[in-house]
Every structure is written in structure tokens, then in C-alpha cells.
Design a binder for these strands. Structure first.
Lengths: 347, 347
DNA sequence: ATTGAAAACTGCAACGTTTCAGTTTATCCC
DNA sequence: GGGATAAACTGAAACGTTGCAGTTTTCAAT
């Protein structure tokens, strides 16, 4: 029984009140550092009584494991990396996503780090960085493509991740997605019901998987209702407000202009509405618009719009869940979820 | 001269291709680990020739310092923590802030971690957490108050930080702020110029410093132009869209309703406009509204509004700059910046 | 030749944690 | 009483880095 054995250090002697470590607790309890470590992990080879004592002291002194220590020793970072496109047009989108993720992570030891990239650069780069440097335990990506190099890369390396959006490459991986197909179907049906015959779709860029989903739903419902499409070329939800407004103005100036629009983004719908009115037409009279939105602003200024709400916050929450599951090694199939659109809201 | 001295490890022998460390480079160059470390730091006691060799090899093998190692040894985390209120109403705000910060951090070794808290909880808590656990080298906070406990806390401890918004407690600290006083003055002048006589202000919550700035500017310009105030009670830019709309409806139903509004938030303005129209009035005719906005959507649906743009992305960029300066120990006074409002935009 | 100092390089230890391979003590069985 | 076994605990080593306190080597000044 020593413990007084002459090797206490400066911080133990002085009232320095520096952060307590395992050594601090070991000293206070008279146990070895190993024992304390194992006790806090509830290891089976430590006595019940001892565990209680250690836990008590740990709580008392406000012990929190040093992240760097853990990380260096085990490689576990307790970090989730959210890889983001910084050119994202969809305002507020990222805020909500982050809030949703944070909500889930709050009860865990995980921190959220935001790893941005510019759309002009290689989207692979930030992913490669995180995987190679092991700077996170899991990654969340968005802007998923049908053949997504990032998904292939992370899958090959067994690196845990979750995608916002699905892929189409025969790989089962964790994802959360909004059912854009169902949305488009609902939107078209609503327009059909309103007596609209010729519809245009403002879709996501062709590269992204949900372009296909939305477009498939759109075309299918169009066929089902016997309507025709007014092709909306040269504009996607990714384009700038001004671009969309310009293209839409063109579209609405044509003799065979659409009388119904399905919009894939709330932000873009602002531009669509402005364009409709630029050419002297009226939303709800000359043309009806159904729009997806994540903030709830559209209806305030254009009650004649039809909207469907997508909760990006919920998406964030689900994505965090998924990636945590992936880290735990759960079956990817159990980490996939799809959220259905709300009913079309009118006012 | 050894180096072949029997102590190479498994990863050196096998073609394991695990991440290169200082040891890897030391082995390859035949130098000691310390020398390599110092060489990469461009220390004066290392030969030029050696430095060149080391740098070359380091680049070749793609050496990147292990963050956990550095952090454990030096306490330096290379992390900036953005402390956020997750109930933030101002949509898109956070996205832009993050993009702005990321932009600055991209060229540095810093990572951005988002530390959220709920407005219902103690705003001190996340700050205390970061400072106590040393989980970042610097903190960015928003929602600054005139007497801000967080600012006091971090200042006392000498912890580097920057605030989005100013304080009023005789402490010189790094900040970036939008000149809300100037904004309010401009807004009131514009309304006066339009012949409006009785103005209301939708201000930030009283607790926050910029409430005072905006309100001071508002009152001063009001006096200067000889206008009167229609008190807008029970609503701030922090309230929900529905609350603001409700209060505004009340306000506009009064006999002595305002004929001009200054709005402190673009988001809130949506609700204001909706309310004006709820009671059968018209923006630009019965009442004029000047609004601040960070996204540029307002004008699209209500060209009769007057808007002033605030670049939150720029704010993020400035804040990152400031906090990095604080970490470097620069004089706080040199880390303060104010951005002026743009001209009032009409359409 | 001797001293001194500068230049270039290096071991060792430590940051806090966990894993591994023990050691000690108590308990049980015959 | 001897041996085996289980229970409870432990020191040493390692993860990658850097600061400290050296050690060599070279060279100039005396």
C-alpha cells in the first residue's frame, strides 16, 4: 500500500485546479490509472464497490476524458463531419440540417464539424481528406448522385457515412431522403385537379439522384392524368435567382406556355413567381404553382401558391441517427429512411 | 551512424501504407524524429540542406501532422467553435455565417465545429464547456448582450473569441457588427422622404445589444425628421412568424396605426407584409416598409418594399478573421469591425 | 595545442488514454 | 497443505508530437 509514493506532480501538489485526468482520480482513490480507466468503462474485471467509488469521485471532480488522449490512443475521434457545398442556393437549408444533426448528437459524445467545399472543386476532396486523416468517425454528405464516387470510395474503405439522398449503384448504404417522386406525383395531381393541362417542372440538376426521382414522378403522374409537359430548359433549382427568373420569363412568354408549374425548391419559387408577374400573368389565375419548401414563407406573400413542406431539420436528425448507426456497425438496410411529403397545402 | 538499428516497426516493414508520421520521415531521411519535427517547423538550428530534404520527403509521402498528437502535446486544437442558438428564427442566417467562416478557415489548419445550445438553456453552458475542456482554440458567439456574461467569462480567462455584435461593458474585445444604428437612421429617413409620419419599429429583443443600436438610430432619426412613433409592443424579430403576424395585425387595425415600418429582419418582414394585407391595406400605398434582409427574396414578391442588404457571409468571414487574430494575441482593438448598411434599395 | 562557441543534430520524457500481460490475493477442491 | 482457479487490480508500453537538455562536429581565436 503506497500511493504517497513520492510521485505526485506539480498539479497534484499545488491548488492548480487544472483539468482532472485519470491520474487525478487514481491518486484520489489510491487506485492505479488502469483500474480507474477500466472502472469508468464498467469493465467486468473491476469490483462493484470500486466502480462505485471511482464513479463517485469522477463525478465529484467533474472528470471528462481528454479527447486528444482517447483519439491518439484509439483513433476514435468522436466527431461527425458534415461535408457541405458552400455554393448551396437553398437558403436556410443548411441551418436546419445542422440543427437537426445537433439535436441527435447532443446526447452523445460526438461533435459536429463542418467541412466545406466549393462546387467548382472536386467533391471528392473533402471526403478523401477526412477519410485519409481519420479526422472523423463518420461523414454525412448531400447532393448525392446515382453513381456517386464518394459513396463508392467510403464503402470500399469501410468508412461509416450517411447520404442525404439516394444512389443507384447497387450499394446498400445508410441514407435519408425526401420522397421527391411522391412529391412530384402529388403536385401534378393537384394541378390536374385544378384543371391545368400543360405543366412544367423546375427540377434539380440532372447529375443529382433526386432529379431522376422528381422527374420520374412528374412524368408518370403526367401520363396518368393525360397531361402534357412544357419543357423547362436551362434552369434547375441550383441556378441563381436571376437565372431562374430569366428562364421562367422566357418560358412564360411562349405561345404554348405552361399553365401549371411544379417547383423543386422554395427559394426558386420566389423567382418563378416574380417571372410570372414580370410577364403580366397571375399566379392562381393564369398559372398554378405547386412548390416544395423548407421554410414557410411562400404562403405569406402568395397565398395562391400550393406548397408541400419538407422538414430539413428532421432530415438532419435522421442522417445523424444513420451515421451513428453506421459507426456502430449496424446493417445499412436498417439505416435507410424516406420521409413522405405532407399533403399539398392551399390557402 | 545507425538508422538500420533494428527498431523499425511493422508498418515500416510491411507495405501497409498507413499514414506517414514523423517517424516515417525520420526513417526515410535517416534523421531523428526531433530533427524532422524541427525541420518542418523551419527552426533556426536545422541546416538549410536538411530542411529542404525533409520538406521534400514530407511532401512526397503526403505527410500531415496528426492532430491528436499535436493537441495532446501542445494543447493546440486547431479548432474554432461556433456557438449557436438552435432556435434561431432567421433562416439562412446560419448557413451564410458558416460559409463565411469556412471561407476564411479554408487556408488555415483550422476546423470549424458547431456547438449548439437551446435558447431555453443557459447560453453560458456551451462556452463553459469549450473553455473548460479546451476543445477549441477560439470561440465565435452571436446574440451578444450589453452586459454579456460569456464575454466576461472568456475575457477573464484570456480565452480567444469574437462576437457577432457588440457589448457595452468597458471591455475591448474582438467583434464584428452590422451598423444597425445607421440602418435604422437610413430607414427612417427614407420613410420620411416618402412622406410617412408615424413609424413603427420591429426591433430585436430588448436583451440583445443591437436592439439598443437599432432603437437609438430609429428614435434619433425620428426626432430629426419630426416624426412620431407608433409603439410596436409584444413582438421582436425573434418571435415566430405567426406571433409577428398576429401582433402586426393588431397594430395595423388601430385607429392610430403607423404609416411606415422599419423591420429588423427579412424573415419577419414576410409576416409584416402578410399582416398588412390581412387587414386589407397595401404595402407601398397605405404603408411603406423598409426591411433589412440577408437573403434577397423580399423584392421578388413585393417590389414595393424598400430593402437594405446585410451580408452575413461577410460577417462570418470577418468573425473568423477576428478570432484568428485573437488567437495570435493581436490587440483586440485591431480586431473590431463594423459593416455599413447598403443604400436603401427600391424597385 | 587549447579553449570556446556556434551549428547541427538527437535521446528522452511527457501530454492522457487504453491494451496487454501480468501479479497478487482470496477461495475452493481434494 | 498443495494446487488450481477466479477475482481484482496493476505497470509498462504505445499512439504522434514537441520542449528540453544534451552531444557531436567544426572552426575560429588565442
Amino acid at each position: 500500500m503506497d500511493g504517497e509514493g513520492g510521485q505526485e506532480r506539480a498539479d497534484e501538489r499545488a491548488g492548480e485546479a487544472s483539468r482532472p485526468t485519470l491520474k487525478t482520480i487514481a491518486f484520489m482513490t489510491g487506485l492505479g490509472v488502469t483500474t480507474v480507466s477500466r472502472a469508468l468503462k464498467d469493465a467486468p474485471d473491476i469490483g462493484e464497490e470500486t466502480k462505485k467509488r471511482v464513479r463517485l469521485v469522477a463525478r465529484q471532480v467533474g472528470y471528462r476524458p481528454n479527447r486528444a488522449g482517447v483519439r491518439l490512443r484509439t483513433g476514435k475521434t468522436n466527431v461527425i463531419s458534415l461535408v457541405l457545398d458552400t455554393e448551396e442556393q437553398v437558403g436556410g437549408f443548411v441551418s436546419d440540417l445542422i440543427y437537426g444533426i445537433s439535436e441527435q448528437l447532443a446526447a452523445t459524445p460526438y461533435h459536429l464539424i463542418v467541412t466545406p467545399y466549393s462546387r467548382n472543386n472536386d467533391p471528392m476532396e473533402p471526403v478523401r481528406y477526412v477519410v485519409e486523416t481519420g479526422s472523423a468517425d463518420g461523414i454525412i454528405i448531400s447532393r448525392t448522385e446515382p453513381q456517386d464516387a464518394r459513396v463508392r470510395y467510403m464503402t470500399e474503405r469501410g468508412f461509416p457515412f450517411a447520404t442525404h439522398g439516394r444512389t443507384d449503384m447497387g450499394i446498400d448504404h445508410p441514407f435519408h431522403d425526401f420522397d421527391n417522386r411522391a412529391y412530384a406525383v402529388q403536385a401534378v395531381r393537384k394541378l390536374a385537379e385544378l384543371g391545368r393541362r400543360r405543366l412544367a417542372l423546375l427540377a434539380p440538376p440532372r447529375r443529382l439522384t433526386y432529379h431522376n426521382h422528381m422527374r420520374d414522378g412528374f412524368l408518370e403522374a403526367l401520363a396518368e392524368a393525360g397531361l402534357t409537359e412544357a419543357p423547362f430548359t436551362g434552369a434547375t433549382v441550383d441556378h441563381s435567382i436571376d437565372d431562374i427568373r430569366g428562364r421562367m420569363t422566357e418560358l412564360m412568354s411562349r405561345p404554348n406556355r405552361p399553365d401549371g408549374i411544379v417547383s423543386g425548391s422554395g427559394q426558386a419559387t420566389f423567382a418563378l413567381v416574380a417571372a410570372v408577374e414580370d410577364v403580366g400573368l397571375t399566379v392562381g389565375k393564369d398559372v398554378d404553382i405547386v412548390s416544395k419548401q423548407s421554410s414557410r414563407l411562400l404562403h405569406l406573400l402568395r397565398p395562391t401558391l400550393y406548397v408541400v413542406n419538407e422538414s430539413v431539420r428532421f432530415a438532419g436528425s435522421e442522417l445523424a441517427r444513420s451515421v451513428l448507426g453506421a459507426i456502430e456497425g449496424k446493417n445499412p438496410k436498417s439505416l435507410q429512411s424516406l420521409s413522405l411529403p405532407t399533403e399539398v397545402e392551399a390557402r
